[in-house]
Amino acid sequence: MIEQLTFDVLNDEQKYQHFMERINRGEKIEADDWMPDDYRQALIRLISMHGISEIMGALPEKEWVPKAPTLNRKLAIMAKVQDEMGHGQLLLRVAEDLMKPLGKNRDNIMQDLFSKRLKFHNVFHMPSPTWGDAAVIAWLVDGAAILSQTMMLDTSYGPYGRALKRICQEESFHAKHGESLVLSLAEGTDKQKQMLQEAVNRWWDALLMFFGPKSKNETGHSNVDKNIKYKLRTKTNEQLRQEFLTKYVPKMKLIGLDIPDKTIRFDEDKQEWIYKEPDWNEFKKIVSGNGPKTNERLHLRQSSYEQNEWVREALGHISSAAVG
């Protein structure tokens, strides 16, 4: 009998070996394929966090949808926030398929979110008091997210890669949208420029924190190594942060923005940015679910989910009645 036909009779160790060989050959793992528990858990953690971050991330931006100044801006930001919800949808589907063998579905993800068992990018859950914040979120927060998502495009998990491909295509619109918002303020009145600068000051630390600490020394634990071993990601936190600074600091200076870090400079010898580290103790607190606006926004999400329970119940009832 041909060797490939005998996959089912392999023991777990052989299956693991077979799995690692596939990954190292650059093959993509699919949802129904055999995978080590460790890999499944790493994927669930990474992708559900990513998906929920998109959905929760829509909430601070949504505050600016009605307030967007012109008809055209209203349309564009609506489309942008909708895309973020759409990214959440794509990613949750990927996570849900991974959780299905464990007997979990979307409802469980939501419950985990509400009980704070499921983490998301809390660093972005800060107050966004002005239109300047909307512009900075659209330009720099999205800019940071684009870098980390692009890095994972070649991930070993096929369904995640396909979702990321769709997401990154849409992000290229988000990048232009963000630039357009920022440029309009930078070209504008003193009041508009000031609004932009103040927003940059508010978001700077969060942007640096978003990429995570350099090594686990700063926070005590990190899943980066495992994610690299399983080819889920290809760059370290610090590599991404350096890329971010290289991409955005010169542009920020060009439009007359002050970087809220007097010490920042590019070291020609080391070929890297030297910058003031954000407060990683603060980071630890925020990551564990205590961002300035985390509770408020969780509450918003939870109360709307619960108030609409009757809708899901009603339609679930039709389907189960039709089947049963």
Binding site: I55, A58, L59, M78, A79, Q82, M85, R106, V311
Partner: peptide
């Protein structure tokens, strides 16, 4: 936006 009864509906409604 962000509050519809179902994520897929949220996107469609928008």
């Amino acid at each position: 936006l962000g509050l519809a009864p179902h994520i897929e509906e949220d996107v469609a409604f928008s």
